[in-house]
């Protein structure tokens, strides 16, 4: 008999049961209700416009921005899955790696030998993304360009944007050109240099 499995399964059932009693919060209900009202109001407005001005006016009417569009992220498609920040004076005070480059649909990260991960925050003027070949080209003014592919091993110079132990984000003004996707795992690392091991 696996006592450990039994205890973990029992404890898991307990949290599931406890959470099953958690009621969805009203905040979202209110948000959805607002959406519905907006959508219905827009529909009503469309009907009104159609009645008064006619079908031609309807086609010329300005579209209403959706809540989803209004809250879209600042990701820039040209950088693909890269997290990219606006150029700023660097702080090449720490090193991360060597780490193996992992390129996923929405994230580029580095994994080192002990399994810890970093998400490089590249400078916009030093990095390009080629969607066709899925390669990153890092071009620092002081060195030759480096073409980086999935599986390559590289070393980053720069500074962590988190406390190593507790993943506490350091209070720093970062102007994102392509914000890291919320699903990216790993320590956010402001990258100021890249070298091969």
């Amino acid at each position: 008999m696996n006592q450990l499995d039994d205890r973990l399964r029992k404890a898991s059932a307990a949290v599931r049961a406890a959470a099953g009693q958690a009621a969805p919060r009203p905040i979202l209900k209110e948000a959805k209700a607002m959406w519905k009202k907006l959508a219905m109001a827009f529909g009503g407005a469309l009907i009104g416009v159609a009645l008064v001005v006619g079908g031609a006016a309807l086609l010329r009417s300005a579209p209403l921005e959706s809540p989803a569009a209004a809250t879209s992220t600042t990701r820039t498609d040209s950088f693909g899955p890269l997290a990219v920040r606006a150029p700023a004076p660097g702080g090449d005070t720490a090193m991360w790696g060597p780490g193996r480059v992992v390129i996923a649909a929405r994230c580029v990260s580095l994994v080192n030998e002990d399994g810890s991960e970093a998400v490089p925050a590249w400078k916009a003027d030093e990095v390009t993304w080629d969607a066709e070949t899925e390669t990153i080209t890092y071009a620092h003014p002081d060195s030759d360009p480096i073409v980086i592919r999935a599986g390559d091993t590289i070393i980053l110079g720069g500074s962590s944007l988190e406390d190593d132990e507790d993943a506490v984000p350091i209070d720093r003004d970062i102007e994102w050109v392509a914000e890291p996707d919320p699903s990216c795992l790993g320590e956010l690392f402001a990258t100021d240099s890249v070298r091969l091991p």
Partner: peptide, 8 residues
Amino acid sequence: STVSTPRD
């Protein structure tokens, strides 16, 4: 995705 209507 850019236009909100009752069809949303």
